[in-house]
Design a binder for these strands. Structure first.
Lengths: 245, 245
DNA sequence: AAGTGGTCTAGACCACTAT
DNA sequence: TAGTGGTCTAGACCACTTG
């Protein structure tokens, strides 16, 4: 028989255990995005550690992008803004030349049976269904991005009642307000392909032109998958900068 | 008259000043890449600060990728390995299917007058010249990447004496050994284009196929530009993953 | 003025590495 | 065994924000 190992928690340094417990409390909704968590003195006395140890735990979460500190005000749960993150890959400019946030248009909404890869990515059970959105993003009336979006039906029922015209330009605030689902992190994979006839027509390019695909899995604070998304855009607006060490 | 401001250093916290001074000493060559810096007790007594403050300075440099710590052994100047960093963008596999480091072949070497953008990127004076290398990277004898590389002639004279066949597969160790130039960080920009006839022939794809361009500026520890490089590869081997928060 | 995070101290003890 | 970085303490004082 395999001897039972001690819980990994006990082997970790205290500041790691504190980090994990703070994440757990955030994931449980004890502090909502934008809210201040307890003060350092409160937390350190409650946990029975010195302020230095507690600060080190918070340092980790700040480095991970989960918390932000503001001297004299407090420490806050950070609300990520992923929709503007498309600027990391595409540079959208309006007719006036200024950077601009694309608007959104829902083309189609349906409840579907997920295929195997989607079921795996969203960690769904065998009978679970998904809500599928087809969406376009526009600048000055021109389609710049074409998106397919899938979320689990369980937890997102509210999306099936809302008129497509009322979805607005940003989905994550909608998820939070209507479905109490908070996106905390995401993993994206970039690939390059060539536009087929339909994609070329949608994006206003020529068939065979290179197009970028961004495939995203969004996770909540507990690491549970919340949304899968596949975004297509013309490659001529694509540029990505990275610093390496 | 504009009142002279105090040096920004004095306004910074001590741990930031310590960080800056350690970078200065590394850039000056006091500790070479791979070498251990002084111990924490030595440094903290020499600087007249507590160990906690010194550790915070070192924490910053570890987070920046400049130093690595090894418990029981010491703190070391990290030697970045950029050439394997192409794996972040391209996935090269040998015939056996295993990931493989491409070999290199120098096609051409010349001393040239830089154009304006290159002069600006390398921060060269009006009369400075550059060494230009054209290079191919191969897997199983197939060309997978085509590179144009420029370094300032001043400081890299040794490259003009070396037989092209003796350059080896990795340039940065060569820069360090022959020219005493150490690459510490780099900035890369990705773009997508379509292969012209010549690029298609080189990379073994069809004209019009999408190709990736990675444009890199490499810097030393002092932030001085050391090398400019433009790498082209077929887009079908391209994949890039990123985690966002 | 009261409360928050930011900086810094002067240690102690532990875990790991090399000899 | 000696020396290194890793963890942690129990504070002090500073800089900033808010009422």
């Amino acid at each position: 028989m395999i001897p039972s190992l001690p819980s990994p928690d006990e082997r970790l340094p205290r500041y790691q255990q504190l980090r994990d417990d703070l994440v757990r409390r955030i994931a449980a909704g004890e502090w909502a995005p934008g809210e201040a968590i307890h003060t350092e003195v409160e937390l350190s006395t409650a946990y029975g550690v010195s302020t230095g140890t507690l600060r080190k735990a918070i340092d980790l979460l700040v480095a991970e992008g989960v918390l932000t500190r503001s001297q004299g005000r407090g420490t806050f749960v950070r609300r990520p803004r992923f929709d503007s993150s498309l600027f990391r890959f595409f540079r959208f400019k309006s007719a006036s030349g200024n950077p601009v946030q694309p608007t959104a248009r829902i083309l189609q909404r349906s409840v579907e049976e997920p295929d195997d890869s989607l079921r795996a990515a969203l960690q769904l059970g065998p009978d679970a269904k998904v809500i599928h959105l087809s969406r376009q993003r526009l600048v000055d009336g021109r389609v710049v991005l074409s998106e397919e979006i899938w979320v689990p039906r369980d937890g997102f029922e509210a999306l099936t009642m809302l008129a497509p015209a009322d979805f607005g330009d940003l989905l994550y605030p909608l998820y939070e307000r209507l479905c109490h689902q908070v996106v905390a992190t995401a993993r994206e994979t970039l690939r390059v392909a060539r536009a087929d006839a339909q994609m070329a027509q949608t994006l206003g390019t020529a068939p065979g032109d290179p197009v970028i695909n961004v495939s995203r899995v969004a996770l909540d604070y507990a690491g549970k998958p919340v949304e899968c998304r596949s975004t297509w855009g013309a490659a001529d607006g694509f540029q990505y900068e990275v610093e390496i060490r």
